[in-house]
Design a protein around this nucleic acid. Structure first.
Lengths: 308, 308
DNA sequence: TCAGCCTCATAGAAACATCCTATGGACCCG
DNA sequence: CGGGTCCATAGGATGTTTCTATGAGGCTGA
C-alpha cells in the first residue's frame, strides 16, 4: 500500500461526468467549477495515468477506448468512496438525526451504506444517524427509543421487538490458497474445527458469538490463534498466510469469488444466520423508516439463496 | 455525483497504514514521508470526516470505533483504486512488456486487474501489458505473437489456439426495481424478449455477439432501445428507470445482490458463456504467463456454480 | 530521580496545485 | 462572415502539503 500516485477522486468524478455529459465545459458547469479549471484537472489526470483518456473535439469531448475502461473502473472507486462518506456522515450525527439507526458491525459495514445511498433519492432531506454497536446494544437502543430502527445479526431476538428479515449471511471458514486446508480432500469434521486455533473477531462481536453458539455442541473450542477487531484486519492476517479464520460471507464474498481466499465448509454445520431489522413491537413504521426497511428487505429478496 | 468533499486517497492509505503499524510516525516512515506531514494529514482527514478516528497515545495511536469502520471502508476504496491503477498501468505499456496480454472488455474490466494484483507479489519484476480489444482481435494478437496470453468470452474458439477455462459468466436481463418487469409473475418467453427493444452494448462487443447468437433461433431481434459503449454506461441508463438491458453477470453482481437491479430470467434460454484463456497451440507456457494462468484458473474453480 | 528514548503536535518557510477571470483558436451554422 | 459552440492558455490569488526544527508528554532502566 504505497502512498504515492493515487488518483485524485475529484478528478475521477470529473472524468465520469464528462463521459456522461459529453463535454468538459458542461461537466464543469454541472460540478460548479470553471471550465478552465476542469480542463486543467483533466490534463493533470491524464498525465498522471499516462494514458490519453479524452478525445477533444470542437463539438465536445469523447472518451478514448482507454478512457472508457478508466471511467468504468473509476465508477467502482467512487461508489466505494461514496459508501465510505455516507457511512461516516451517518455515524457523525449523534443527535438530531431524523432517522436514528443502530446496527451491528457486519450489517453496518457491508449493507447499511448501500441502503443509505439508495434511500437518498427517495428521501433527500432525511438525515440518518448511525450507531455501530453489538447486537445486544442495538436491542437496547431500539427499546429505549434512541434508535428508531435497528439491524442485528445472530440467533437471539429480544422480546418486545418486531423484526423483518433483511438478509441472510453465512459464516465461512476461510484460508489462504497456500494454506494446507485449501487442498484438503477429507471433509472438515466439526470436532477438528473446534480443536483448531483460529483467527477470530473480538469477543462480543456478532460473528464471534454466532460461531461459538453453533460450535458449542461439538466440544470446547481451542484458544484463538489471534483476535482482531475488524473484518478487514482478519483478512490482512489471512493474506499473509496465517491459519484458518472465521468470517462473514459478506466480508469475503469478493475474495472467494476471485480465489484469493478459499472456503472450507465444516461437514454438517449450519453457519447461516439471519440478518434482521428490528423495531419496537406494535409500533407502525412510516415515512423514512419505512422506506429504509423496504430497501433493506428488497436486498434480502435478491440475496435469498436458491435452496431456501 | 457531486465534486466536492471526496476523501483524499493518500490520507486514507495513510490511515490504513497507521492501523496496521499502530503508530503515526511508523506509518510515515513506511510511506516515505515525514512524521509531521503524516500527523497533519491525518488531522485534516479527521476534520474532513467530522469524526475522530485516532486515539493518540504516548506509545502510539489506536483506532477509535469509528476509525475501525473508516479503515474497513477505506480498504474497499483503495482496493478499487488499486485495480484502476493496475489496469491503467498495464494498458499503458504498448511495447516492451515482459508479458503482453490481450483481453476482451468484460474480462479486462472485471477480472484482469484482480489477477494482476495477485500476480504482483509472485512476480514483482514483471511488467504486464494489456490490450483491450474484442474477442476476434484477441485471437489475432495471440496468433501473431503480439500477445502471449489472451482472454476471450463467447462461444467461438479459433483454430490454432489452446485454451483453459478461467471462469463462467452469464448474461442477464436486468431492469430497475421500478420497471414493470421487476414485478411480473408470468415467465419471460424468449420470443417476447426478442421482440422487446433493449439497452445493449455496442455491436462487436462480446456481450452483444453472445446475446445475438443465443437469441437467433427465437426470431429476429427488435431494434435496440439504446446502444452504449460500456457496461457502466448501460447501468447508468438502467438507474434512471429505462427499459430492460442485457449485461454480464460480472458487471451487475453487486447491484443484483443489493436489490438495486432485478434480473428477469428468460424461460429456457441458456445465456451462460465460458471465459477462456488462450495461447498458441503447442506452446508451453512458463514463467509469469504460467503464474497468471494459474491465478486465473483458481478464480474459475471458486466461481464454478454449484450445479455444474 | 533523571537521562535517553519513544510517542505525537506545533511553528514557520518553501514548494506546489488549484482556483478563478480573461482571452485566444478552432469549428459549425445560418 | 458574424455568432454560437467547444477547449486551451495565461496570470495572479489562494490554499494545502511539504519539509526541518523544536516542544510536550510518558515509559524505562540506570
Amino acid at each position: 500500500m504505497r502512498l504515492n500516485n493515487w488518483p485524485d477522486l475529484e478528478a475521477l468524478a470529473l472524468l465520469v461526468t464528462v463521459s456522461e455529459l459529453g463535454g468538459v465545459g458542461r461537466a464543469a458547469r454541472q460540478l460548479g467549477i470553471s471550465q478552465p479549471s476542469a480542463s486543467s484537472r483533466l490534463r493533470t489526470l491524464e498525465r498522471r495515468l499516462g494514458v490519453p483518456v479524452l478525445q477533444r473535439l470542437p463539438i465536445g469531448s469523447r472518451l478514448t477506448a482507454e478512457g472508457q475502461m478508466v471511467v468504468d473502473w473509476a465508477r467502482e472507486v467512487l461508489a466505494a468512496a461514496d459508501a465510505l462518506m455516507t457511512g461516516v456522515t451517518a455515524m457523525r450525527r449523534e443527535r438530531g438525526a431524523a432517522l436514528p439507526v443502530a446496527a451491528s458491525m457486519t450489517v453496518a459495514e457491508y449493507l447499511v451504506p448501500g441502503w443509505l445511498i439508495a434511500l437518498r433519492p427517495m428521501e433527500p432531506d432525511v438525515t440518518v444517524g448511525l450507531q455501530v454497536v453489538n447486537s445486544a446494544r442495538v436491542a437496547e437502543l431500539v427499546l429505549s427509543g434512541e434508535a428508531e430502527v435497528g439491524f442485528v445479526e445472530g440467533p437471539s431476538l429480544p422480546v418486545g421487538l418486531a423484526s423483518r428479515l433483511v438478509g441472510r449471511d453465512r459464516l465461512v471458514v476461510v484460508v489462504s490458497p497456500r494454506h494446507p486446508w485449501a487442498r484438503r480432500r477429507t471433509p472438515l469434521r466439526p470436532r477438528e474445527l473446534a480443536a483448531t486455533p483460529l483467527i477470530v473477531r473480538e469477543p462480543g462481536s456478532g460473528t464471534r458469538i454466532t460461531f461459538e453458539t453453533v460450535m458449542a455442541r461439538y466440544g470446547p473450542l481451542a484458544e484463538p490463534l489471534l483476535e482482531l477487531g475488524s473484518n478487514s484486519a482478519v483478512k490482512v492476517a489471512l493474506a499473509s498466510g496465517a491459519g484458518p479464520a472465521v468470517l462473514s460471507e459478506l466480508a469475503v464474498g469478493d475474495e472467494l469469488a476471485e480465489g484469493r481466499l478459499v472456503a472450507v465448509a465444516p461437514e454438517g454445520v449450519d453457519l447461516q444466520r439471519k440478518l434482521r431489522a428490528v423495531w419496537i413491537e406494535g409500533r407502525r413504521l412510516d415515512g423514512p423508516a419505512r422506506s429504509l426497511l423496504t430497501l433493506a428487505a428488497r436486498g434480502a429478496a435478491a440475496r435469498r439463496p436458491p435452496g431456501s
